Deep mutational scan, measured.
Amino acid sequence: MRVFPVYAPKLIVKHARIFLTGVIWVKDLGRLEFEKGRFLLPRKSLPKVKQAILELNELIEAQN
Rank of each mutant, 00 (worst) to 15 (best):
I24C: 06
R17Q: 10
A8Y: 08
F4Q: 00
L40M: 11
L40E: 04
G37F: 04
P42R: 13
H15C: 05
E33D: 14
E61M: 09
L59N: 04
F19W: 15
N57Q: 03
V49P: 03
E55W: 06
I60K: 02
T21L: 06
E61S: 11
H15D: 02
A8R: 08
A8Q: 09
E35N: 12
I60E: 03
K10R: 09
I53Q: 01
V13F: 03
P5W: 15
P9V: 04
I24R: 00
R43I: 05
H15A: 04
A16P: 01
N57A: 02
E58A: 11
V23K: 15
R17E: 09
L46T: 12
L32Q: 00
P42N: 11
V23L: 10
G37T: 07
V6R: 08
Q63V: 11
K48V: 07
V6Y: 14
L40D: 03
Q51S: 09
Q63P: 09
L54D: 08
V6S: 05
I18L: 11
V49S: 04
E58Q: 13
W25Q: 06
V26T: 03
K50G: 05
I53H: 01
L46W: 14
A52D: 01
V26D: 00
I12Y: 01
V13Q: 04
V26F: 01
L20P: 04
E35Y: 13
R2C: 15
L56M: 08
M1P: 15
A62I: 13
L56N: 02
L20V: 08
W25K: 07
I53G: 00
K27R: 05
L11S: 11
G37E: 05
W25C: 14
K44C: 09
A16L: 06
R31E: 14
D28Q: 14
K44S: 07
W25P: 00
I60A: 07
E58K: 12
E61G: 08
I53S: 03
I18M: 10
I24M: 06
F39C: 02
I18Y: 15
L11H: 07
L20W: 08
L40V: 11
F34W: 04
E55P: 00
P47Y: 09
V3C: 15
Q63S: 11
L20D: 11
V26C: 04
R38V: 11
E55D: 08
P42C: 09
I60C: 05
V23N: 06
V26A: 02
K27I: 14
W25D: 05
P47Q: 11
A16F: 03
A8G: 03
T21P: 01
E35V: 13
V13S: 09
L56K: 04
V49C: 05
P5Q: 15
V3I: 04
L40P: 04
E61I: 12
Q51T: 08
L20M: 12
V6C: 14
L54H: 12
K48D: 06
G30P: 00
L54P: 01
L56Q: 00
R17I: 10
E35G: 07
F34R: 00
P9I: 04
F19S: 11
P42F: 09
R43Y: 06
M1F: 02
Q63H: 10
P9K: 04
A62H: 12
L32E: 01
I60V: 08
V3Q: 10
L56A: 00
A62C: 11
L41S: 08
E33S: 15
R17C: 06
L29G: 00
F19T: 13
L29M: 09
I53N: 00
P42T: 09
V3H: 15
K14L: 10
R38E: 06
V26Y: 01
L29R: 03
L11E: 13
G22E: 01
V23T: 12
F34V: 04
E55F: 09
Q51L: 10
I24G: 00
R2D: 13
L40W: 05
L32C: 02
A62T: 11
N64C: 11
Y7I: 02
A52K: 08
H15Q: 03
R31I: 08
F19R: 07
V26L: 03
N64E: 13
P47D: 07
S45Y: 10
H15V: 05
R38P: 01
V3Y: 15
V3N: 12
L11R: 08
V13N: 02
E33T: 15
G37P: 00
L11Q: 09
L54K: 12
R17M: 11
N64I: 11
L54G: 08
V23Q: 14
Q63R: 05
R43Q: 07
F19P: 00
V13Y: 03
K36N: 12
F34T: 00
K10A: 13
L59Y: 06
L59C: 04
